[in-house]
Write a protein that binds this DNA or RNA. Sequence first.
DNA 1: CGGAGTCGGTTGCAAAACTCAACTGACTCA
DNA 2: TGAGTCAGTTGAGTTTTGCAACCGACTCCG
Lengths: 141, 141
Amino acid sequence: MIGDRWSLLILRDAFRGVRRFDELAADLGIARNLLADRLQKLVDHGILVKQPYQQRPVRYEYRLSAKGVDLSPALVALMRWGDKHILGESPPVVLVHDRCGTPLEQTLTCPQCAEAVTPRAIKSRPGPGAVRSPKNTRRSA
Amino acid sequence: MIGDRWSLLILRDAFRGVRRFDELAADLGIARNLLADRLQKLVDHGILVKQPYQQRPVRYEYRLSAKGVDLSPALVALMRWGDKHILGESPPVVLVHDRCGTPLEQTLTCPQCAEAVTPRAIKSRPGPGAVRSPKNTRRSA
DNA sequence: CGGAGTCGGTTGCAAAACTCAACTGACTCA
DNA sequence: TGAGTCAGTTGAGTTTTGCAACCGACTCCG
């Protein structure tokens, strides 16, 4: 659903509060027809919702749905990765807690052991939705 | 760098331990020439490393570099999102702590307040690498 | 009233990316 | 000798993008 060159960038802008067609087009440098198409697809997938913000003429803005907001951890993780590995530790933006302004940490934690878990200490296990042979099942996300 | 239909899927497989050309091709259903191209690009970007696992004939496998391993939080976040919103709460795999087997939680935390932070309580702020006008800077990730 | 500007798109065409299927080359195993 | 495995490459054909121009509804200015 979001595996193309633009969808993730559009969503990042959506999180930053960029919601209007022309704002997105100008900020991303995306072709307008593609932007129209991507927005429509994101709306179809229920990640964004299109709502009018004025009548006469009707103008729309694209906001994140609950499903879209839930992508936050993924976007945040990608952003931090980019900051670290592409830009070399001098991030153009940092995420902070709105109450106290402290830069945030993202961690995977074990509620049992009450500690952070490193990637190497992660195991995967079949869950309730597992099927017999996951091979060749057509995927789309 | 990873904004295409396959790179994220290849990386997911890499995390699961799928490292060989034919394994990846069979598991993903990707065209072989594209797989070759994507692997090469991921190697060029330093996300994967290509190393021989046998001589006579020389055969290579693709492993995650440190930079690649650092993508873990992003992949994990996307996986959890997919489980929740596409499959409706019956995940085919769950991530567990290898020591105790407990399913893991992913959170954004404020080290100052020592509590989890919801997406709505996140603010962004210019960081040390900020530039005057971030508009129209060509991006590639 | 006329003309310029804004916003949110659509249309058309060339260029790039992707899919599919077949082929290669080095080697192993029976 | 012949079949099979692995890691690709090659080529033809289809689909998706990128770019630029255009459109329609409306507002604002004089």
